[in-house]
Design a binder for these strands. Structure first.
Ligand code: FES
Ligand code: FES
Lengths: 147, 147
DNA sequence: CCATATCGGACTAAAATGGTCCGATATTAG
DNA sequence: CTAATATCGGACCATTTTAGTCCGATATGG
């Protein structure tokens, strides 16, 4: 339940789908190649995303992945938590029984606040925004992107 | 370099010292017992804190640990990073060479922002504040602390 | 000098992470 | 229908990290 490379892979995957024609099915291999993700690992990851209702998986010939919702509806937080589980940055905050001190510990509320803040930040970013930041290279050709 | 139980142990340890008479040396065993930290593990942890200049370690008979600075000068961030290394929540953000995509990846700036925010939140909390939140039980006896 | 108590580093166990493999199943082309 | 394609879904494995222990060396107080 931490931000790992799996998280980043998931983000890249959804980002790729967000950049494709809406609702189009993209082959796993294509995504893996374009985004530098180990293909078998992407398969596992995709299942988590599908289970969370973010993407649709089409099996069989000409199969692949597609978004279930418009990119503007998918938040970064949703993808992160689909990939790595609920985002919690302190074991103490995760399972209350592991920490009978919580009520007494003044640090507890700080962890909670930090977590809320972090999740809010990620929740405010949607994939249409991210995709838009990625598009320019195709539209504005040869602008000042070289450093 | 993540928030783990070691982080929490470190916080509790410094918190205990902050609650003691300023500059007093407290035995490791006492801290371990009072704060429910495995004593040998605290020893290892204390070395990290000492290395970071947060606490002073007194060896020999009647030895133990003491703060190097007034509690008001010690931030939660300092303790966290002393215990677990620099706080970074994305491997991608940690080592640039591991992620040649960083400049192109729109997620990158979000990770960076989230990290700044998180560190700022922790940096604004000092141990005199935390200690103050913990004191009441001794002063206000038998108030509404029972649920 | 001796008892006490930490140093500091080697060591181990368990969990999480990153990744692979493969039989089963679904879909499409022909 | 059948063959080819491509994912499912879960078992499996290697590496790294985490949590924790142990112990000889060293420092200090009495
Ligand atoms: S003891 Fe659980 S948050 Fe401090
Ligand atoms: S690829 Fe490194 S932050 Fe996205």
């Amino acid at each position: 339940m931490q931000l790992t490379v799996a998280t980043e892979y998931a983000v890249r995957c959804v980002l790729h789908l967000a950049g494709a024609t809406a609702g189009a099915v993209v082959a796993r291999r294509e995504i893996a190649q374009a985004r530098a993700i180990p293909a078998p690992f992407l398969a596992k990851l995709a299942q988590r995303l599908a289970h969370a209702g973010l993407i649709r998986i089409q099996a069989g010939a000409r199969g692949g992945y597609a978004l279930c919702q418009p990119a503007s509806q998918i938040t970064l937080l949703a993808v992160v938590e689909a990939a790595d589980g609920e985002l919690v940055l302190q074991p103490c905050a995760a399972k209350p029984q592991a920490c009978p001190r919580s009520p007494a510990c003044p640090a507890h509320r700080v962890w909670a606040k930090a977590r809320r803040q972090l999740r809010a930040t990620l929740a405010h970013v949607t994939f249409d925004q991210l995709a838009a930041q990625e598009k320019p290279p195709t539209r504005t050709r040869k602008s000042a992107w070289t450093s």
